[in-house]
Amino acid sequence: MDIATFAFAALYQFADAFAFLVLSACGLAVIFGMMGVINLAHGEFIMCGAYVTATAVHAGLPLPLAILAGALVSAVVGMLVEFVVVRHLYERPLDTIVATWGLSLIATQGTLIVIGSTMAGVGTPFGSFQVGAYSYSIYRIVLFLAALGVLGSLYALFNWTSFGVKARATIQVPHMADALGVDTRWIYSLTFACGAGLAGLAGGLYAPTMTLVPTMGATFLMEAFVTVVIGGADVFLGTAPAAAVLAVVKSVMTSWQGQLFGQIGLLVAVIIVVRVLPKGISGFLLRERT
């Protein structure tokens, strides 16, 4: 293998890992960053997005629209969950984890009861291309671009729209935002829906690449956790750089020892990083700035 094909293989691996980390984590990170709440039903919102996407494709919808439908349905479910459960627990962030874990259990087992242990999947579109002796999936490149697109849209949303500005005001000084006439409950509700919708989007995007089972959310969960733990509370200063760093670790370990060691590498990296940077990368970057 010459240098160019090797470099391409490494780049492809990195892009694949980066996309998976960003897409898994951003829904969790938005909710955690804005509300200080860890949503343990995150995996089930991903599952929801994937299931809706597959259903829509089977019903004849083109894949991109089906993915959007998946994200939208997850967002609506997210809003509902916020209204029924999460809203009542803002004073007790630790209890929110516990309650959303209960929801996760209900969702996984409920899906198992209603839909059964598997669901017919969706074929991976676009086929593959050849570089050197290896063939690569074009759809993985699409996923990488989607991850960049999501980061860009989030940046635009929180910096350039009135919702984003109000949302950031609400996190920083809730009572002030209240006094200025921002309906903070509505902002929280929308933020939670946004996080759930992003999870649904991740599910929809990955639906064509994996088997659809009720417990599929757990596949994303560990990556989402480690990215948020290392990233800290800020989506742009945290999640994106954390995903980049972890993607290097994961792709190097994976190409060296295989998938599993990629994941073990992630975990070890995380445990070492929390010892050195307890507030995550964004905490570290923000400390230098303020």
């Binding site: 200080g36 757990a218 969960l221 956790f225 733990v229 599993l260 929390v274 010892r275 050195v276 307890p278």
Partner: peptide, 26 residues
């Protein structure tokens, strides 16, 4: 690593859960 790194609250929960999920996968 956790306590001497002074991680607390929700982070403790998700690090320990990540370790658990990892072990299961392994």
């Amino acid at each position: 690593f956790m306590f001497f790194g002074r991680i607390e609250g929700v982070f403790l929960g998700i690090v320990t859960l990540a370790v658990t999920l990892m072990l299961e996968r392994f």
